[in-house]
Computed example of a mutant assay.
Amino acid sequence: MTEMSTAALPGLTWADHSGVLVVTMDRPPANALNRSLIVGLYTFFTELASHAAPAPVVLTGAGARFFTAGGDIKELEGTGPAEIEGRMRDFHALLVALDRFPRPLIAAVNGHCVGGGMELALFADTILATANAKFGFPEINHGLLPADKGLRRAEYILGTRAVRSMVLSGDLFSVEQAVSIGLVDRVEQADTLLAAAIETARTAGAKAPVLYRALKRSVNDPDDVRDERSLVDTIDAAKAYFEDPAAAALRAGWNRDRISRTAPADR
């Protein structure tokens, strides 16, 4: 895996830290999840999982402000239902790959972790975050919806009441609240976050792989039938909201404002 050309996976880089792979989403200014990055992450995790002894992974974002700001709304401009369906299929496939990744996966959240980024982090075994990290599902305010599989995972980890509040308000919340609800395992200083995540991954990776795989599968409880139902629900919802005038107006408004909020100087 480490011999693959990073040029083949735009917006994604990785480095081997003595047996721990640090995978970095790198799309300035906010590491937004466009379709090529989603497919790249899927490719990375599925290919790595196919190895006899996959390395532990730390997933993080480039820069100091964003783990990832979630889906790239700009990419949706001028697209139609077929494109949004393809994008949602790709994102669902990525979540399935993360759900089934058999080795340690640590999220090193270095800033905003919202929308699709929140969904990615929820499939990590451990989440470490900096004090400036923000979390949430803001889609209702931006004319979008999370993937059904991501919401089911959030409910499984955090509970129905907490997730209901998150998704219906769209409000972001602090790392302190994330710790209190069991989303974040530990807060780290920005300059020690990556080292702490690598050490966490290395410690977990030292466990017997066959046992780690079996226990992780039991805890995550992956289910093909349930996943297919989630995919159908996600696509049906996307078809309903994508051309809805109110949702489209929210996306357009968010797009107009996003450049000032994610200026490169702030990264």
Rank of each mutant, 00 (worst) to 15 (best):
R213D: 03
R35V: 13
A131R: 15
A82Q: 09
S180Y: 07
A15W: 01
E228D: 11
L98R: 04
A214Y: 03
K207G: 07
A82H: 08
E47Q: 11
V163I: 01
V167R: 12
T79R: 15
G78V: 00
M88C: 11
D244E: 14
A252T: 15
A69K: 02
T46S: 05
E83W: 15
D221T: 04
H92F: 06
P146N: 03
L59R: 05
R89L: 10
V210R: 12
P56S: 06
Y241H: 13
K207F: 07
P81H: 14
L37K: 05
I259S: 13
E243K: 12
D227Y: 13
N31Y: 01
N110W: 03
E75V: 15
M166K: 02
A237V: 04
S169A: 10
G86Q: 12
A15L: 03
Q189V: 07
A162E: 02
T24L: 00
T203G: 11
G205L: 04
D244Q: 15
I181Y: 01
L172Q: 10
E119T: 00
D224G: 14
G170D: 03
L122H: 01
L37N: 04
V20P: 09
G115T: 07
V210N: 12
L128V: 07
L158K: 00
A15Q: 05
R153G: 03
V22G: 05
D227H: 14
D257H: 13
R87H: 13
D257F: 12
R217L: 01
T130V: 12
L183Q: 00
I181P: 01
P264I: 10
A195N: 10
A97C: 04
V39N: 03
K134Q: 09
D148R: 11
P10L: 04
V20M: 09
A248R: 12
V114F: 07
T160L: 15
H51Q: 15
M4W: 15
Y212F: 08
T2N: 10
M1F: 06
V187W: 12
A252E: 15
G115F: 05
L168N: 11
E188L: 06
A55P: 06
E199F: 07
G78I: 02
T43V: 04
P209N: 09
A64V: 11
T203I: 12
K207L: 08
A190P: 11
L9M: 06
R202E: 08
G205P: 06
M25A: 11
L231M: 08
D244P: 10
T46M: 04
T126H: 13
P104S: 02
D233Q: 12
P102F: 01
F135K: 02
A247H: 13
N31I: 00
S169P: 05
R261V: 09
G11F: 01
H92V: 08
S180W: 05
R186M: 09
R87T: 13
P28E: 11
A64G: 10
H142F: 10
R261F: 11
K149A: 15
A93R: 03
N34E: 09
D125Q: 12
S50L: 09
R217V: 00
A97M: 03
A82M: 08
Y241W: 14
N34S: 08
R100Q: 10
T60V: 05
D224E: 15
L168Q: 10
G19T: 02
M1C: 03
I181V: 03
N34V: 07
R202P: 09
V167M: 07
